[in-house]
Amino acid sequence: MPRSGWDPTEDSEQGTLTATASSRIKRDLMTIFTDPPPGLFVVGDELNLKIIHAIIVGVMDTPYEGGFFYFVLKCPNDYPIRPPKVKLMTTDAGNVRFNPNIYSSGKVCLSILGTWNGPAWSPAQQLSSLLLSIQSLLNEKPYFNEPGLVQEQIPGDSKRYNEFIQHETLRVSVCGMMENQCRLSIPEQLKDIMGKTFLEFYDQYVEIAKNNMHLDGTEMIDPFNKGRHLCHYKNLLLRLEKIRAKVMGKTWNFFKEPSCTNVDLKERQTNEEAKCSSTIAS
């Protein structure tokens, strides 16, 4: 039977995975390890086989380029009969909606997750196909992901949305994630991947910041949300340089936080909310 609620961190399903479910989860993970799709990294939770941690790296030539989007998945006891629940954790503590289909609460609207209309989950799907579907939401023109928007409401909306997303990607999902501003408990293996990927993308990050430097201090417009968002490219460039120095010097210790469960994490996030959102005026 389908379950209610979308949030893996608030899922109330008790009990243990069926034997078929746990072997399927392991095989799902194994296929990603042996044949990793570009920009997609997963690791199973050390303590709970139901929980999967995933990082989707924003694809080149999209406004998400080089960003680290950290997702937590929870598989139901009868996986793959029913789909996992998925939450985007990279939201600047619930402050940034990165996509028309991915809310600032972390909810991912996708028919195969049962959170949107359209083709439902099929047991023939797997974790990699699910994550690829999510990755495809982070595309070149996310504005048009919004259902019913085949043309811009105001001319230029799509371009403005891209500018906003590009800035927030650098601010929240690159700098914020590397500095672990929101104290997320990201598994070590994924942090290592972030460190390496950061260096690979570093020139691009800098180029984006420099190309947009003329916008520094100006206001960005998010067509989907009212409120003021200021450009901080000058500041972002400084943060990028600092992070790079730390990663290169192997003194990259933003993550030396005691690990915590996802429930703890939710509370911590709330505590950290003020800090995290300080750069944005609302």
Binding site: N225, K226, S277
Partner: peptide, 12 residues
């Protein structure tokens, strides 16, 4: 940051 669009239409 008020998710106006979200709360008015999509989420509702």
């Amino acid at each position: 940051m008020g998710d106006e669009f979200e709360s008015d239409t999509v989420v509702a």
